[in-house]
């Protein structure tokens, strides 16, 4: 078994990682890069906990052998807060009590970010569809949908002077 060096741009910084064959993006993030914000839920593509953005699109990190995305841009939840300020999606989740146990939160937020990047003013139905692959076993879906809509509304407004 021969490992290989895989280069990906991780949260804006190019990283080279020596990996065993078939190492998943989820394992690379959590085990090699200590980015544990991306959660391991089912490892089967059924729960959405490991949702990250690959080249801007929401994908499931547990189903991606990293050799197949060499050269791609990967964004995880760790990239959202800037200068000690939460991203509007994170802020909306906090303010809207949209995190219960918190396990699904990073996946929910990344799926929502994927949605807002192509559809900045989504309808409630759009949001429900966008997170339909993300399971919240606390079943706090209503507050999660509310938070994503609140974030979208807030992000549409001009930035505060301090920001």
């Amino acid at each position: 078994m021969k490992g290989s060096v895989v280069s990906i741009t991780l949260n804006g910084v190019e990283r080279e990682t020596l990996v065993a064959p078939g190492t998943t993006l989820l394992n690379l993030l959590r085990e090699h890069q200590s980015l544990t914000g991306t959660r391991r839920g089912c490892d089967q593509g059924s729960c959405g906990s490991c949702t990250v953005l690959v080249d801007g699109k929401a994908k499931l990190a547990c189903l991606i052998p990293v050799e197949t995305i060499a050269g791609s841009r990967v964004e995880t939840v760790e990239n959202l807060a800037l200068n000690n300020e939460l991203h509007p999606l994170q802020q909306a989740f906090v303010e809207g009590f949209a995190t219960q146990c918190g396990f699904c939160t990073s996946g929910m937020i990344m799926a929502a970010k994927g949605l807002l990047s192509v559809n900045p003013r989504p309808s409630r139905a759009d949001v429900i569809r966008a997170i339909s692959g993300n399971v919240c076993r606390c079943t706090g879906y209503e507050s999660i949908v509310d938070a994503i809509l609140a974030a979208a509304a807030g992000m549409g407004k001009p930035l505060k002077k301090s920001a």
Partner: peptide
């Protein structure tokens, strides 16, 4: 398309 999996899954 809408009836197959989730948007995240359909990206893959």
């Amino acid at each position: 398309i809408d009836s197959i999996g989730s948007p995240t899954l359909r990206n893959m």
